[in-house]
Design a protein around this nucleic acid. Structure first.
Lengths: 144, 144
DNA sequence: CTTATTTAAGATAATTTTGTCCGAATAGCA
DNA sequence: TGCTATTCGGACAAAATTATCTTAAATAAG
């Protein structure tokens, strides 16, 4: 469904959001350990998310990653996915055709219209805030 | 969504089904040309599908691939996907956790329950017959 | 029974994705 | 200023996926 990079990106953003809600800036090392991901690879992904204005990075001692508290609710999963995997997941053809639309559909086009639109809506409507708070109360998990 | 291999597998099976409905056995070369796929790679995929009892292969002159007419309706997309990509697409965790279920869910688990179940149902209920007949009447396309 | 045609099967190669390493840049602190 | 913790950014490496090539095996037809 998502690439590994995107999985790490979502998990990392969720953890950073959770900590940011409590005013904590978190280091790469801590993030990677909390989400069980390879450190250096995670760094690249966080870097990309920072460039895409999804999170902020601070260099130097006591540096790390954070998200402005007031933005946590307006950042949606779709933003993260788009930054890392692009929009193929809901805009691309299930069979990989370059031109696949209602006029020239692949054999599965109609079958996927509903599913892809549900997925798109879900990603566009789910905020980092919503995702992080489940974690906070111990209802959901980022590793295992 | 699907791997390239799976995309080719679905497209190839659809074309073979269409031709089998008209009693035509089709060669690898013809299939690859009809679905715009690399010949040798397609051969591997067809071979796998044959081993999985989804289609039949016949060696030698006038050989090729075919599907028993009476089976075309009972072969579902889910069978093809399972043979090539496995069942991760509807059973795996969206965030890649090994253990992710209602009791120990990842933060996206609940969000994906409906989408994955819809996808699963769709793949399990869509037969090769249904997919091939759209092609037959020129309503859908396998390349472009 | 020989030849031509076609799939089978495995080795190899190219590409993409995933992952590592290391020096540079930045910032806090003594 | 100089030391240290940390991200930045690019080069490099490993693994997975996609794709090619070559030879073998099967089989229909002359």
């Amino acid at each position: 469904m998502f690439s590994k990079a995107c999985e790490y990106g979502i998990k990392a953003s969720t953890y950073i959001a959770l900590q940011s809600l409590e005013m904590n800036r978190v280091s790469l090392k801590e993030i990677a350990s909390e989400i069980n991901s390879p450190i250096a690879f995670t760094a690249k992904i966080l870097h990309k998310l920072a460039k895409n204005d999804i999170l902020e990075s601070v260099k130097g001692p006591y540096g790390g990653f954070q998200i402005k508290k007031e933005r946590i609710d307006s950042i949606k999963l779709a933003h993260i996915v788009a930054a890392i995997d692009g929009d193929d997941i809901y805009n691309g053809c299930a069979l990989g055709l370059d031109e696949c639309n209602a006029l020239q559909p692949c054999p599965l086009h109609e079958k996927f219209v509903g599913i892809r639109s549900d997925l798109k809506k879900m990603l566009e409507n789910t905020s980092l805030y919503e995702v992080a708070t489940g974690l906070e109360v111990g209802l959901t998990f980022l590793k295992r």
